[in-house]
Amino acid sequence: MKPIGVLRFLGTNCDADVIWALNELKAPNKYIWWADHFDEADYSGFVLPGGFSYGDYLRVGALAARTPAMEDIQIAAKKGKSILGICNGFQILCEAGLLPGALTKNSSLKFQDQWVSVVPKNMGSHWTRMNSIMRLPIAHSMGRYIADESTLKSLSDNRQIWLEYKDNPNGSMKNIAGICNAKGNVAALMPHPERAMADWMGSHDGKLIFEVLQWNR
């Protein structure tokens, strides 16, 4: 089985947790370094983990989105490979233009580190197995999803809103916690599924999120 590529940028800090989570799911995996080019055909899917790539300089995700490894992620996305972005990974995918919209400062103006309930919504064919409220942790200061009216409308119309917060913690438009692209192969969320893989961690709902990578193989 081909491995899932886990991207590491300077300042990524949830990479080892994502590898641990994939190992828990017995999914083969391999790190991909930001400066290296790769052949998307060698991988079954990709995860962009959370962190503070490039110290969040200029704009969150902006510098990571323009690295050599991301040029190949663009190719992988076009070819329909599954790509999952988590937290900073979500921000990077938006900056790369692979997902619409942008992530901005929480309306609280604070870094928020707490458990939230998210509701899977408007699921395309890849997401249909998620049917209950999931409990996942968030840890971000730049998690408020924004987009213009026409983008929000097309997200709704095309069933691209993947996860909604039950109680909106950060002021995200339409309570958005996660979205996917029109094709459904690029998806991202602000909560951290890798921190919710077992009951001793507080929840095992994160497993469902990672299974997304396997359904689409």
Binding site: L58, R59, A102, D148
Partner: peptide, 9 residues
Amino acid sequence: EKLLYNPLI
């Protein structure tokens, strides 16, 4: 246009 600003925000 390539990097320094994000037209959405």
